[in-house]
Design a protein around this nucleic acid. Structure first.
Lengths: 238, 238
DNA sequence: CTATTTGTGCTACTTAAGTGCTTTTTATCC
DNA sequence: GGATAAAAAGCACTTAAGTAGCACAAATAG
């Protein structure tokens, strides 16, 4: 086990990508991290209504966790956010202290840094200057949610699928990441549709030669074709 | 004109309903309001890309303002929030200082209290204890947006329409408020649909005797019938 | 090595929602 | 009061998306 005060040097590269705590000096990080401990969760771990969860705040240092909603009547799933390295949760609960009725599931073997909610709130009160960053981050999340709403109302499934693909292309390597190893069902959950419909649209993209697919494997073959197709969708939806 | 330092006594009853500034003492209100001035906007005033807007924060003291989005391709509208007395805007911009690409339109003759954004930010820095309330409010907004997303994904138009109606029934008087004088088109914009479809569903509700409608006039006749219909929708969507 | 589960590919069918247009009703403005 | 415009009502048609089902292949567990 790594001593607590080494958490920063251990995860420095990840933590420096953490938007919520931008601008922290090394010593501020050391101070903050002294309240954290490390946890490891196995792939497919599912966290539902766990009381502990309400009272801890997490920074992901490795692996992906999907945060999703289940409709109480249809039992359909919708993935709200696909959280990954340097992402945090749950902000909803941190902000207003009310239980957040969502589910979490680890898509990989995952490592997180954990802190009791009230300790983080105390830290924030002692470092009121940090509130600024939390508000900025809240603004960003609100914008993300708002644009999600707009997409759902204004665009069809093809468009949403194309945007999802394009948003997850690594700008350097031009390779699809984060969602490239997910089954069609999970892709469907991300855009609010069903496996069959998503597959239908993916088949079309495959036939025009813009993507390649295998079991749990998606690859971009021609990003320009995808962009052209997106434009076409926009034009047709006049 | 009312002298500035009288704004509080003038609008005390409204301001005390203002969630964002809950817990302010009278003298704190006086201090805060000294930075505000009053503005009156006529019905149907439309605020688009007005530079001034980016740099001011508003509290509504009278009338309704719809905050809406327009799809750049289809030019369809979607009403994000129907703001009314004691509501504030724009939080998105206050939080992260980035321009918020939305539109505003006054549905009534409107009165607002206005303050330059940076002055409010200064006030917040001087009163860091208030940050807590802003975060709580941000949490609430994020939850509202999230539940909006869920509704769009999980439920059909009938359900969304029924919920809209039920959410706007005054718990005392049992009368429909806020949306009772809107044309079908505006109702449609609120739930992300079209005038024709909304009208089709309203006709059904009318035929079963749960509502009464006339030009720009919606009335609840039997709230229990609406609740029963909502349950039926949920069951059918199993 | 076999049995089971999980994911994909494809077909045929159903349906809610959107579209385009016309008719009717209601408000309001000279 | 009559003309004009706006909102609502109604109808026929199109279509994207959802549904159900099945065959097949790959992964996984026992």
């Amino acid at each position: 086990m790594v001593p607590k005060n080494d958490l920063f040097s251990k995860y420095e590269s990840v933590l420096n990508n953490c938007e919520l705590f931008a601008d922290l000096t090394n010593s501020q990080w050391q101070d903050l991290l002294s309240h954290f401990h490390e946890e490891k969760w196995k792939k497919n771990t599912c966290i539902i209504n766990h009381q502990k969860f309400l009272f801890h705040f997490y920074i992901i240092t490795k692996g992906r966790i999907k945060m999703y909603n289940v409709d109480e009547f249809s039992e359909k799933e919708h993935t709200l956010f696909l959280l990954k390295e340097a992402d945090v949760f749950d902000l909803f609960c941190l902000f207003d202290g009310i239980k957040h009725r969502v589910y979490y599931e680890c898509l990989d073997n995952t490592k997180v840094l954990a802190i009791p909610m009230d300790r983080l709130r105390n830290w924030l009160n002692k470092n009121p200057h940090q509130y600024q960053h939390f508000l900025t981050y809240a603004g960003k999340m609100m914008r993300a949610l708002e644009s999600n709403v707009s997409q759902l109302i204004f665009t069809n499934i093809t468009t949403r699928l194309l945007k999802l693909l394009l948003e997850n292309v690594n700008s350097q390597s031009k390779k699809l990441e984060h969602i490239n190893d997910l089954p069609n069902k999970e892709i469907a959950n991300l855009i609010g549709s069903t496996r069959a419909v998503v597959n239908r649209h993916l088949q079309e993209l495959k036939q025009m030669g813009s993507i390649k697919m295998a079991r749990n494997q998606l690859e971009i073959k021609d990003i320009n074709l995808l962009l052209k197709e997106l434009e076409k969708q926009n034009r047709n939806h006049k």
